[in-house]
Amino acid sequence: MFESPLRKLLDETALKRTLERMAHQIIEDSAGVDSLALVGVVRKGDMLAARLKKIIDRVAGGDIPVGSLDITLYRDDIDLMGSIPVVRATSIPFDITGRTLVLVDDVLFTGRTIRAALDALMDLGRPKAIRFAALVDRGSRELPIQPDYTGLSTHISIEERVKVELVEDGLSDGVFVYRAESGWVPGED
């Protein structure tokens, strides 16, 4: 069923500008991008990570590695999930040990996804540092987790749902707020 969004947080141009700004901040913080790598949380985070990589490569020169991380197996709510999501492959084709990783996700909400992502990364090696970039910080944290880079910081009611729509998914770029559905799937936000 097609549902129309309650309102728009970022349109195509604003999203583009936001990603540009985040990429510049990341470059600024890491003196040289040599040991930098991006890791996107599947599925939206890895699409955003790929876009950030393009910008960083263009601005700073080079070819920074980018990987994708599926955190399904690190979730703390397997008993609460109504249905089991398909476990997607984690693909990090470089050694994370000694690198500064920027973890990328679309929406920061409770912080549980990032808790799981940190555990998952620790199983893959010993990075020098992990920073966190969130396109939208919607508030309502349940864990003490804060982003290092934020595209947009706003408070969204838990009755509502923030959705990042990307051309990679066959939609047009934008960030929207929808009414939260009763059949909300964990991990969708």
């Binding site: 197996l73 690190y74 492959a89 893959l124 090696g125």
Partner: peptide, 15 residues
């Protein structure tokens, strides 16, 4: 998604 776990140094997930 599970195939890749066998190739990790730590072949274990907390699921």
């Amino acid at each position: 998604g599970f195939l890749e776990i066998a190739k990790r140094p730590v072949k274990k997930v907390p699921a």
